[in-house]
């Protein structure tokens, strides 16, 4: 048994300079990078509403949340870099489409209610996905996730509060909240990935202690968590097959359209092109700032040396 295998068997953490199989390293780089890209692209759907938030309070909250997404992206890029990949390679992989980000951010935010719904459903699904990653076998990833999960709970609660205000507001506001939930429900269920039978790398990731629960297990956990919350909100979920199975102690739900998931991942979602174009423009627009900082640093280093 190698030191890597015995560490995994004991449930010990793997740290950056430890020996590890190349596939383990490659799998982690891909997963952590995809996760980081999702946080960075994930700033856009909600960021679009910062200037249109209905009050100063909501605007300050939304600004803080979008800043958190940036921070989460940076924690994760830092974790990926400990595996020997450069930040510039990761950015390049995102901008050229070689690496993916979560399919959920390719849907548009049409109304203010979408912002609350994203907080409630999308961040809720993210938490269900991410909490087990706090015990992932790779130390820097696990430590980043602990930090992220702490901050995500604010995200979900603010979303719930915002949506509750709309649901209990005027009939027009209530209808807007219901419409947003109707549009985001199924894409949120797709966030857990393809069904277990079509998830080819799951077994290996589970053996390596990267993945703790299967896609379908986490999807079910999310449904069971959210159905009672929808009731408190006074909103319905757009699934006629939703019913409680007393024997399983869980909610049955209708079939998820995984063809749509495949299409969105393949680049054919409503906003794929827009999200990447926006990210590329931000990268280009910021180039002069990075250049100025570099020149300033070089000049001061020179003066210090003289």
């Amino acid at each position: 048994m190698t030191s890597f295998e015995s560490a995994i068997a004991e449930g010990a953490r793997i740290e950056p300079r430890d020996a590890m199989p190349e596939d383990y390293r490659a799998t982690l780089i891909r997963q952590i990078a995809q996760h980081a890209h999702s946080e960075i692209i994930g700033m856009q759907p909600e960021g679009a509403w910062i200037t249109r938030a209905p009050s100063l309070r909501r605007k300050a909250i939304l600004l803080a949340k979008v800043q958190d997404e940036a921070g989460h992206g940076l924690y994760l890029y830092a974790a990926a870099e400990t595996l020997g990949v450069a930040r510039s390679e990761l950015y390049d992989a995102l901008l050229t489409g070689r690496q993916k980000y979560s399919s959920i951010f390719n849907y548009p935010t049409l109304t203010w209610a979408d912002v609350g719904t994203i907080g409630w459903l999308v961040d809720g699904a993210a938490i269900v996905n991410q909490v087990p990653l706090c015990r992932c076998s790779y130390g820097p990833y696990a430590r980043g996730m602990v930090r992220i999960c702490k901050e995500e709970s604010f995200h979900q609660r603010q979303g719930f509060e915002s949506l509750l205000a709309l649901s209990r507001g005027t009939p027009g506001q209530h209808a807007m909240a219901q419409d947003a939930v109707n549009r985001w429900w199924w894409p949120s269920l797709m966030m857990f990935g393809p069904p277990d039978a079509d998830s080819p790398h799951s077994a290996r990731s589970t053996a390596w202690g990267i993945k703790r629960f299967s896609n379908d297990t986490l999807r079910q956990r999310f449904v069971d968590m959210v159905v009672p919350q929808a009731e408190v909100l006074g909103l319905t979920l757009p699934d006629p097959d939703l019913r409680f199975d007393a024997e399983r102690g869980s909610w049955d739900f209708g079939p998820v359209d995984f063809t749509e998931l495949r299409e969105v991942v393949a680049g054919n979602g409503p906003c794929n092109a827009e999200r990447l174009a926006h990210r590329r423009a931000a990268e280009d627009d910021g180039a002069w700032v990075r250049e100025a900082a570099r020149v300033h640093a070089a000049k001061h280093a020179q003066r210090g040396a003289a």
Binding site: Y75, A78, A79, R87, R143, A293, R294, H300
Partner: peptide
């Protein structure tokens, strides 16, 4: 706590 990139 982690790392980051900066010019100086």
């Amino acid at each position: 706590v982690g790392s980051l990139h900066a010019a100086d």
